[in-house]
Simulated assay, not measured.
Amino acid sequence: MTSQAEPTRVGAETDTEARLRGLMDRGYSFVHPRDASGEVVAVVGVRAHGSVVDVVRLEAEDDVVAMRIPGGEPDILAPETVLWKESGSMVAVVDKVLALPDDEGPAETSSGKQGCWVPGRPGRAKWLAAS
């Protein structure tokens, strides 16, 4: 018998893997922000759609924050306006994220393009087009 707890299985996947698959199936793209030394500080799932951006930040299986923010927010990791927010365990938070209704309005930035900038490596960002 090992001292580590076995992950709960759903078919051939763990609960965490199943939730991540659910986010990917819903159109989330993932980035891995790093600190100045290059270490990954979190796994961040982002989905720009309608007039909003949904963000899921995973620091650990029991330390997850998700939020829905307006599409025009300049910094999605530290937004000024938050429309919905939840924190807790991976399973609880992602289940609530996947239950959120979609917003159908246009998500346009000041340039008129739909999507948002997502921070990556220090000093770098990636454009994520709205789905």
Rank of each mutant, 00 (worst) to 15 (best):
residue 6 E to I: 11
residue 7 P to E: 01
residue 8 T to Y: 05
residue 9 R to W: 01
residue 11 G to V: 00
residue 11 G to D: 05
residue 13 E to I: 01
residue 13 E to S: 11
residue 14 T to V: 10
residue 14 T to A: 09
residue 16 T to N: 12
residue 16 T to R: 10
residue 17 E to H: 03
residue 18 A to V: 06
residue 19 R to I: 04
residue 21 R to I: 14
residue 23 L to E: 03
residue 24 M to R: 15
residue 25 D to V: 07
residue 25 D to T: 12
residue 27 G to V: 11
residue 27 G to D: 09
residue 27 G to Y: 05
residue 28 Y to F: 15
residue 29 S to A: 12
residue 29 S to C: 01
residue 30 F to Q: 13
residue 31 V to G: 11
residue 33 P to K: 05
residue 34 R to Y: 00
residue 34 R to F: 02
residue 35 D to A: 08
residue 35 D to Y: 11
residue 36 A to N: 08
residue 39 E to W: 04
residue 42 A to R: 07
residue 43 V to P: 00
residue 43 V to L: 12
residue 45 G to A: 14
residue 46 V to S: 11
residue 46 V to G: 14
residue 47 R to P: 09
residue 47 R to A: 13
residue 47 R to D: 11
residue 50 G to K: 12
residue 51 S to V: 06
residue 52 V to Q: 08
residue 52 V to A: 07
residue 53 V to T: 15
residue 53 V to R: 06
residue 54 D to I: 08
residue 56 V to T: 10
residue 57 R to L: 02
residue 58 L to I: 15
residue 58 L to Q: 13
residue 58 L to C: 10
residue 59 E to H: 08
residue 60 A to M: 00
residue 61 E to W: 03
residue 61 E to Y: 09
residue 62 D to V: 01
residue 63 D to E: 11
residue 63 D to W: 00
residue 66 A to Q: 07
residue 67 M to V: 14
residue 67 M to L: 13
residue 69 I to T: 15
residue 69 I to E: 02
residue 69 I to N: 04
residue 70 P to F: 06
residue 70 P to K: 09
residue 71 G to N: 07
residue 72 G to M: 01
residue 73 E to D: 06
residue 74 P to F: 00
residue 75 D to V: 10
residue 76 I to N: 04
residue 76 I to A: 05
residue 76 I to D: 03
residue 77 L to M: 14
residue 78 A to P: 00
residue 79 P to W: 00
residue 80 E to M: 02
residue 80 E to I: 00
residue 82 V to Q: 05
residue 84 W to P: 09
residue 84 W to Y: 11
residue 85 K to T: 14
residue 85 K to Q: 15
residue 86 E to P: 01
residue 89 S to A: 12
residue 89 S to T: 15
residue 90 M to Y: 08
residue 90 M to G: 03
residue 91 V to S: 08
residue 91 V to F: 02
residue 91 V to M: 02
residue 91 V to P: 00
residue 92 A to L: 01
residue 92 A to H: 10
residue 92 A to M: 03
residue 92 A to D: 14
residue 93 V to R: 02
residue 94 V to P: 03
residue 94 V to N: 03
residue 95 D to P: 04
residue 95 D to C: 08
residue 97 V to I: 12
residue 97 V to F: 02
residue 97 V to M: 04
residue 98 L to E: 03
residue 98 L to Y: 03
residue 99 A to R: 10
residue 99 A to T: 13
residue 99 A to V: 10
residue 100 L to W: 02
residue 101 P to V: 03
residue 104 E to V: 12
residue 104 E to H: 10
residue 105 G to K: 04
residue 106 P to A: 05
residue 106 P to R: 13
residue 108 E to S: 05
residue 109 T to Q: 15
residue 109 T to D: 08
residue 109 T to A: 13
residue 110 S to H: 05
residue 110 S to I: 02
residue 111 S to L: 08
residue 112 G to H: 02
residue 113 K to H: 07
residue 114 Q to T: 15
residue 114 Q to F: 00
residue 116 C to M: 10
residue 117 W to V: 00
residue 117 W to T: 05
residue 117 W to P: 06
residue 119 P to D: 06
residue 120 G to N: 10
residue 120 G to A: 13
